[in-house]
Design a protein around this nucleic acid. Structure first.
Lengths: 220, 220
DNA sequence: AACGGAATTAACCATTTATTAACCTTTTCG
DNA sequence: CGAAAAGGTTAATAAATGGTTAATTCCGTT
């Protein structure tokens, strides 16, 4: 449901369990490690989107682990957030040098932590996808263009969804009718054109190309 | 474009200029002050959303300024983030007492700083808006809006609870029936609408959106 | 059993969305 | 080139979908 993988690193099993439980409840896939050394290894296997790591750990501390993980140059490079207790503040600078993306004070309320994690992942997600193509958000029934939500009614939405599902592929009118209207509905010739027109109006022409006598295609 | 006002406080003109330039490029409205005393005064005029303040300044240091600003009880109270150089760490506790919201080490990469500022403002925006979203209190069977308890009967409550559980997600009528009425109950077409209507009446329209032919969604 | 709020239905209205019709423009190809 | 074919555009019309209201039924409580 939630596509994100999180690696949770702490030497206290209680914390791993508690935070793991809450993160999983939110739908994240969670793996754990008990110290820095394990963290480096697990990060390589799991390729997590986010690593939540305690700073103070036996064998290898968080900063050192962070550095190693950064060096390993995984793609895509994970976000790394440190859990820091007050009093460890003086080492925060080291954390930045090591390449941490965020500092999360401990203790922290679980709801605050969750919202912070959501924000981190979301921000990263947004920056990674610098707004080229469209995003068809079926859950929200929205088309996102340049970060802007565009609403479209059902038929338009489905039509765009179809074309967008295989960019560059030409869909014949028959295919479109079959997929969007169903095989037994009969509608006039101009119906598709009108919908295409509205789509172009909303997402900008240049995204949907006509290939005369063949069909339509979506291009980014 | 970007509605946020930031007050930048540092005694070094170079830093003011450099950071100001970058912040403005992101679309923030930026004002500056050169010391703590000025900062207190400017804060009162500008009512900034965020104050980025150096700790070490002539005439009045950052912590003192922070305290004064907090005392002035501006509404809404600004976020205050301190810029701290390494070696000043021991005074960070004082900063916490003074009411700082974040500590930003100096030097810091400009991109990191920007993302941190975005995160701060965003997080604050989410938490500080108690007027917006609703709270569904299952234990008390109450919906809290703007601190006010709103009673709603069972079906309405469950319906709202469902929609509210995933803001922005579109719930189809089938999903709603299944979740609120159960799979084997059969009720007429207009039943949901009537409940939706009552919900809108109670929580204000603008929270529940209809997507014709698709379903309903809750938005904050 | 009778009361009262909650839930549902029915009938009607309003709005949005989808389709069509008529006409125009561009492309294709003999 | 020029006619036919394909698609574009627009506004009008139809169909689908929800919204509203009031009446009715349901159900738990007294």
């Amino acid at each position: 449901m939630n596509p994100y993988r999180i690696l949770l690193v702490d030497d206290e099993p209680d914390i791993l369990e508690f935070m793991g439980y809450n993160l999983r409840k939110e739908g994240y896939r969670v793996e754990t490690a008990a110290d820095g050394e394990q963290a480096v290894a697990r990060a390589a296997e799991l390729l997590p989107h986010l690593i939540l790591m305690d700073v103070m750990m036996p064998r290898m501390d968080g900063y050192e682990a962070c550095r190693r993980i950064r060096e390993a140059a995984h793609t895509p490079s994970p976000l790394i957030a440190f859990l820091t207790a007050r009093g460890e503040d003086d080492r925060q600078i080291e954390g930045f040098d090591a390449g941490g993306d965020d500092y999360i004070p401990k203790p922290i309320k679980i709801k605050v932590l969750m919202s912070r994690i959501r924000a981190l992942l979301k921000r990263a997600g947004e920056e990674a996808a610098p707004g080229q193509g469209l995003l068809i958000d079926i859950v929200r029934h929205m088309v996102v263009k340049d970060g802007e939500d565009i609403f479209m009614p059902r038929k338009e939405f489905n039509l765009l969804k179809l074309l967008h599902s295989k960019p560059d592929k030409v869909f014949s009118r028959e295919e479109i009718f079959s997929a969007v209207w169903g095989d037994d509905v009969i509608v006039g010739d101009r119906t598709i054109d009108v919908h295409i027109r509205k789509l172009r109006e909303k997402i900008g022409s240049g995204h949907i190309t006509t290939i005369k006598g063949v069909g339509y295609k979506y291009i980014d």
